[in-house]
C-alpha cells in the first residue's frame, strides 16, 4: 500500500466551494494511474492532495504508511525531494539556469550534484536532448522544455511521479514522446505514476483510470 486516501474532502475559498467530497482511494506501488474528468471535477486538486502539496480539509492522506498531516515540515520537504517528482502542464523551468542545471536542482538541495551529473546527462541523452545541456529554457522548443522538466522530476529516482496535464501545452508528437517516457519509467523502474489528463487516449495508457465528476470518484 503506497498512497491511501481516507474520507478526504477539500473545501476552498470564501464563500466556501467544495472541490472534493469523501474520497477513498488506494494507489499501490508501481501503478500507473490516470485521473480523468471535466474541468472543475477536482482531479488536479486530488493530485495535489496525494502529493502533499495541498492539505485535505477533511479525512487524511497516508503516504508509505505516514499521515501527511502528521509529518514535520522538514521531513515533508525531504520526502518530496527524495521520493517525489512533479511534472506540470507548464514546464516551470528556471529561466536563468541551463537545461542541465535545471535537471540537477533537486540534487543541489541535498548536495548530490556531482553524483547525479552523469545520470542527468544520461536522461538528456535518453530524451533526445544530447548536446543541449547548456542551453537555457528559452533556447529550447516547447517539447524539449517539457522533456527537461521530466528529466528534472526523475533525477532523484523518485518513488512517485505526479503529473498534472503534462501534455496540455504540447503538440501531438511531443505529447506522445512525453507519455512514452512516463510509461517507460513506470515499466522499467517501477515508479508509481499518477497523471491528470484531459486526453482520453493518453488516459487509457494507464493501467488504472479514475473518473471524477463534481469532486467524487465514479
Amino acid at each position: 500500500m503506497a498512497i491511501n486516501l481516507v474520507n478526504v474532502g477539500k473545501v476552498i475559498g470564501n464563500p466556501q466551494t467544495r472541490i472534493l467530497n469523501n474520497i477513498n482511494l488506494t494507489i499501490a506501488d508501481g501503478e500507473f494511474v490516470s485521473f480523468v474528468g471535466r474541468s472543475g471535477s477536482g482531479k488536479s486538486t486530488l493530485l495535489y492532495l496525494l502529493s502533499s502539496l495541498d492539505i485535505a480539509s477533511e479525512g487524511f492522506v497516508e503516504i508509505d504508511g505516514m499521515k501527511v498531516s502528521d509529518l514535520k515540515p522538514d521531513d515533508l520537504y525531504q520526502f518530496r525531494n527524495l521520493k517525489m517528482g512533479f511534472i506540470f502542464q507548464f514546464h516551470y523551468l528556471l529561466a536563468e539556469l541551463t537545461a542541465l542545471e535545471n535537471i540537477l536542482m533537486p540534487a543541489r538541495k541535498t548536495n548530490q550534484m556531482k553524483q547525479k551529473e552523469g545520470y542527468a546527462l544520461d536522461l538528456l541523452n535518453q530524451f533526445g536532448l544530447k548536446g543541449k545541456e547548456k542551453r537555457l529554457p528559452r533556447q529550447l522548443s516547447g517539447g524539449e522544455q517539457q522533456r527537461v522538466a521530466i528529466a528534472r522530476a526523475l533525477i532523484m529516482k523518485p518513488k512517485y511521479i505526479f503529473a498534472d496535464e503534462p501534455t496540455g501545452a504540447l503538440d501531438s508528437v511531443n505529447a506522445k514522446i512525453v507519455i512514452d517516457i512516463m510509461t517507460r519509467v513506470n515499466q522499467e523502474q517501477g515508479t508509481t505514476v499518477i497523471m491528470v489528463t484531459h486526453d482520453a487516449g493518453f488516459a487509457q495508457l494507464a493501467r488504472k483510470q479514475i473518473h471524477l465528476v463534481d469532486g467524487k470518484i465514479v
Partner: peptide
C-alpha cells in the same frame, strides 16, 4: 512566484 512553487515541489524549505 512560479520558481518558488517548483522549488517547493523539489523539497526546498521555507528557509531556502
Amino acid at each position: 512566484r512560479k520558481d518558488v512553487a517548483i522549488l517547493r515541489s523539489m523539497g526546498y524549505t521555507d528557509g531556502d
